[in-house]
Design a protein around this nucleic acid. Structure first.
Ligand code: MN
Ligand code: MN
Ligand code: ZN
Ligand code: ZN
Lengths: 136, 136
DNA sequence: CTAGAGTTTGGACTTTGTCTAATTCGAGAT
DNA sequence: ATCTCGAATTAGACAAAGTCCAAACTCTAG
């Protein structure tokens, strides 16, 4: 499925998000590239031509998308969060040198031997991160 | 193995770290508790009675311990890094509500189906994080 | 047009962490 | 015991990522 700016309003509505100009631009930055982006990168992409959004709106909007299940958060770098337009179950390959993140489909991976969850705990998710370093 | 303050100098020397008062106190904060602590928590613990170390020294020392393989870094929270005195291969159970981290021995866990590493890449490590939420 | 809810905004603020120049420490030499 | 000098520590300025808020703007229904 290919995303264009025209898709965005529908995509947002389907997640119960009122599509505004800023929200469409922010969604388009993520979904047209299908890449893992930091808040800073999203803002830079949306504002390349002329200023179209503010820092506060970028953070507000990414939090809203997250809460509505439109995107995911990836925590691999101590300095910044990455936002992930891919919400299918998947894991990550992280190049600690370049900061580049690659998806690894969860269907290909099997994890066994996990301990039983503590009494009354609900599973939020399982994050598997393969950290690599490109030998240079 | 139980750790006392007297062990610390030897532990540091065995990792090629010159044992100073501050380094001993910082190591003791981690190894006497065997808990995952943030830099702030380490500093608070060392300075409970009277001021014994500075922020700069805490960060310098934790980086040194890390580099010398005495401790590990755990990246699960977007806000802060946790330092882990347990360097045996293990994974983590993370309670996203309370921020509490629990170790899961790597020997009990089997992961299969990982993709081959990209050409010329070296494995840095595999981090598995089970995120839970205590229903309440 | 007007009202009100929802959205966006600049900028002050916070937190976590880095950096540096100056000072202090301490083990070995005298 | 004192001196010396590299190693370690420090205060505090700085930076990056993120939060918060009150004011302003926008959009739609009446
Ligand atoms: Mn535009
Ligand atoms: Mn003391
Ligand atoms: Zn991803
Ligand atoms: Zn651990």
């Amino acid at each position: 499925m290919r995303y264009s700016r025209d898709n965005m309003a529908g995509l947002l509505r389907s997640h119960d998000i009122n599509p505004t100009h800023q929200r469409i631009e922010i969604a388009y930055a993520l979904f047209s590239r299908m890449e893992h982006l930091s808040a800073d990168q999203v803002m830079a992409l949306v504002n390349v031509h002329h200023s179209e959004t503010s820092k506060a709106t970028v953070y507000n909007t990414l939090s809203l998308f997250l809460q509505k299940g439109l995107i995911r958060e990836v925590i691999v770098d101590p300095n910044k969060v990455f936002y992930d337009p891919n919400t299918r179950p998947h894991h990550h390959l992280y190049d600690v040198e370049s900061g580049h993140l690659t998806d690894v489909d969860a269907e290909d991976i099997h994890i066994s031997g996990l301990p039983p969850l503590p009494e009354g705990a609900a599973l939020e998710g399982i994050d598997l991160i393969v950290r690599i370093r490109k030998a240079g």
